[in-house]
Simulated scan of single mutants.
Amino acid sequence: MREKVKEALEKIRPFLQRDGGDVELVDVDDNGVVKVKLRGACGG
């Protein structure tokens, strides 16, 4: 599951970076809950 989430984030990362932001994968728990940290322009 974690690898699939990473792949999905890599697909959207260029769009976020284009606007001055980024995304970091924090955790994927056993229930499939994904936690990310938005950075830069996306942080708010």
Rank of each mutant, 00 (worst) to 15 (best):
K4T: 10
G44C: 10
A41L: 06
A8Y: 07
K6R: 11
D29M: 02
I12A: 06
R39I: 13
K35T: 15
V28R: 12
L38E: 07
G44I: 05
L25M: 01
P14M: 10
L38W: 06
G20N: 12
A41H: 03
L38C: 08
V36G: 06
N31D: 08
D29K: 01
D22M: 00
L9R: 01
D29E: 04
L9I: 10
R39T: 15
F15C: 11
G44D: 06
G20A: 01
V5S: 03
D29C: 04
V33E: 03
K6Y: 07
D19T: 08
K11Y: 06
M1L: 11
R2A: 07
I12E: 01
D27L: 15
V34Y: 04
G43R: 12
V23G: 07
V5R: 04
D27V: 00
V33Q: 06
G43N: 14
K11L: 14
L16F: 02
G44S: 07
V33K: 08
L38F: 13
R18P: 02
G21H: 11
A41Y: 13
D19I: 09
G44R: 14
V34H: 11
P14N: 10
K6N: 12
K4N: 09
R18Y: 04
G40Y: 13
M1V: 13
V5T: 09
R18D: 11
V33Y: 13
P14C: 05
Q17L: 13
E7S: 15
V5Y: 05
K35Y: 12
L25W: 03
E24K: 14
L16R: 00
V5E: 03
D30W: 10
D30M: 09
D30L: 10
D22G: 13
F15G: 12
K4P: 04
L38S: 00
L16W: 05
V28G: 09
P14I: 14
I12P: 03
V23Y: 06
E3V: 04
D30S: 13
G44H: 12
K4M: 06
A41M: 13
G20L: 00
V5I: 15
L38T: 06
L25D: 00
M1P: 09
V23A: 00
L16I: 04
G44T: 07
G40T: 12
K4C: 07
E3T: 08
K35C: 05
L16N: 09
R39C: 08
D22A: 09
L16S: 02
R39S: 02
